[in-house]
């Protein structure tokens, strides 16, 4: 796994829009040109965002005991999206650490708002599938609001929002890496703290309770962490599709491990690798054009979900 990370890292460094020889590369590391201002931040962002989204999707799947849960499915991304749309379309400027943090704050308000709604519904509705559908509907609703906003917006704001909406790991803003790293650390620490309680949770609420899990605070902790992870990534990279949902399943394809504590490391590393891989593909090192990130994540993520559905028919997984 560690090898894979190193491998991907070097791959990212090699991948380039402008031609750079291997000899040049060494010099570039010591000076501060294209590499330090663009490629390395982008690679780090991709790695961190991939890990954050994977973690968020995985914890949501545990929380809802549903393999199809994920930040984009539950409308969490849409919540952040709408709030960011409000900020961007209202014409706030892009530069400076203040706007960067403002963006994060907006995205967090959005994601927590949606999560609070979902939590409210899930406490009333026992059927978890219903909760998922509720999340989807919230997503559509918020999307509708967003399109009204877009319709009403001016040209220049519109462009910045649309390019944000296609999602990208490449738009670097001040302090971005630290905030991403911070939320990833928060996520990892939460998993370490909860430990085997996450496993107990999968047995069902009743069993979890009888094993000493405080249901209310457990739920709250997971929701806050998932909202923070997904919200922060959405603020900086846009509404990235599928990575959160697909990542845990992608890992399970080669690493079947039911215990959360053991799964954690592999998931985070694979999430980071996947983020960088997607970033690499969007930049298409062999050509000069750039693909939208969401096109790439959907191309890679959707088949995983389809595979999951087909497979779950066979092996008696119920929703």
């Amino acid at each position: 796994m560690v090898l894979a990370v190193v491998l991907f890292y070097t791959e990212i460094r090699f991948g380039s829009i402008k031609m750079t020889n291997a000899d040049f590369w060494n010099r570039f590391t010591e000076n501060d040109p294209v590499l330090w201002a663009f490629r390395i931040p982008a690679a780090c962002t991709a790695a961190l965002a991939g890990a954050c989204l994977g973690l968020s999707g995985w914890l949501l799947q545990t929380l809802f005991r549903n393999p199809l849960a994920g930040p984009s499915i539950l409308g969490i991304t849409s919540g952040s999206s709408l709030m960011v749309a409000l900020v961007l379309l209202a014409g706030f400027s892009f530069s400076g650490i203040f706007s960067s943090l403002g963006l994060v704050a907006a995205a967090l308000i959005g994601s927590f708002g949606v999560l609070a709604l979902i939590l409210l519904v899930s406490s009333r509705v026992k059927q978890l599938a219903t909760v998922l559908i509720f999340g989807l509907m919230i997503g559509y609703l918020l999307g509708a609001f967003q399109s009204i906003l877009i319709d009403a917006a001016g040209k220049s704001e519109l462009k910045s929002f649309v390019s944000w909406g296609l999602a990208s790991f490449g738009n670097y803003r001040d302090g971005q890496l630290w905030v991403l790293l911070g939320s990833l650390v928060l996520g990892v620490l939460t998993v370490l703290k909860l430990g085997s309680k996450l496993d107990f949770w999968l047995l069902g609420e009743d069993y979890a309770r009888s094993l000493g899990v405080n249901v209310k605070s457990f739920r709250m902790a997971l929701l806050v962490v998932c909202g923070a992870l997904a919200g922060v990534v959405t603020a900086y990279c846009g509404p990235v599709a599928f990575l959160g949902l697909a990542m845990p399943h992608a890992v399970r394809m080669f690493y079947k491990e039911p215990h959360h504590l053991k799964f954690l490391t592999v998931l985070v590393l694979t999430g980071a690798c996947a983020g960088m891989l997607c970033e690499l593909i969007t930049r298409m090192p062999w050509s000069s054009s750039v693909l939208p990130l969401n096109a790439v994540t959907s191309f890679l993520g959707a088949p995983v979900v389809i595979w999951l559905l087909v497979k779950s028919r066979k092996s008696k997984i119920r929703f």
């Binding site: 005991r65 549903n66 393999p67 999968l202 047995l203 069902g204 009743d206 069993y207 009888s210 399970r252 079947k256 491990e257 039911p258 997984i317 119920r318 929703f319």
Partner: peptide, 15 residues
């Protein structure tokens, strides 16, 4: 206290 109930949880990959 240990409990046993009727619910059958989805335990993907658990032995």
């Amino acid at each position: 206290i240990a409990v046993v109930n009727t619910a059958r949880p989805v335990l993907n990959g658990w032995t």
